[in-house]
Design a protein around this nucleic acid. Sequence first.
DNA 1: AATTTATATAAACATAGATTGATGTGGAAG
DNA 2: CTTCCACATCAATCTATGTTTATATAAATT
Lengths: 127, 127
Amino acid sequence: MQNLVNVFKALSEETRLRILKLLEHGELCVCDIVAALDMAQPKVSFHLNVLKEAGFLKDRKQGRWTHYSLDDSDFFRRFLLMSVLERIPKDALTEDRKRLMAFVRGKHSWDDAVRSSKGKRCAGRCK
Amino acid sequence: MQNLVNVFKALSEETRLRILKLLEHGELCVCDIVAALDMAQPKVSFHLNVLKEAGFLKDRKQGRWTHYSLDDSDFFRRFLLMSVLERIPKDALTEDRKRLMAFVRGKHSWDDAVRSSKGKRCAGRCK
DNA sequence: AATTTATATAAACATAGATTGATGTGGAAG
DNA sequence: CTTCCACATCAATCTATGTTTATATAAATT
């Protein structure tokens, strides 16, 4: 029963709903999410962990990066995710998406400029 | 968005899930729920109010009593209720039901004893 | 009107959850 | 093997939520 409670607890915080919505169209690394939400990194890591523990997210580690994505392995959670994502007002995430896109663009142009000379690094806010 | 958050917040507490489960088969007055949960009355009233504010319960006042029941007017909440009720392990509520039944039995036998002489009053733990 | 009963509300207190700032870890680059 | 970077974790603080005790309200009975 406590398990069920934790599922709902994970969904009862605005930051976490924003994270889920950001991940709607595919995986993102932590620094992407930090940039999109414009929040301190430990704060974001905290919420990512809550969502992961509750079974809503899975992570994939690759080198220095950790990529998070929606975990659709459980039917109940998947349904909850669906109804959450569709119920978040569209304009609530406009700024997040704007920041995310700007950040990702930054990463790519940086990559292009220094490709094969210095390798990859995180752009913009990651310093 | 905060509205959506509150829906999940209401479901992320064990006492409140127990209340919902108790109401699965029909309305109950506050004193019934207090007896079933074996908790202080203000505590129960607090949780009933959280569930009501979140749109999961409605109330019906009749004389000195307030009867609460599941509010099935909204589709989303109704679905949430369904999946919650079906996911609560059966044995988790055995004691609650036992206490509820004992209490309700108490009310009736008391009623029978004094019917039409003193009118109705709450039995057992309500003193 | 005074009293009793069912429930609600308020204030004080306790606990759990979230935020922040500092530090730790592990991989990759130099 | 040292440094840098992405991320995680920790300890301290702050805030929100739940609990308790006492009191208020309102209906019904006396």
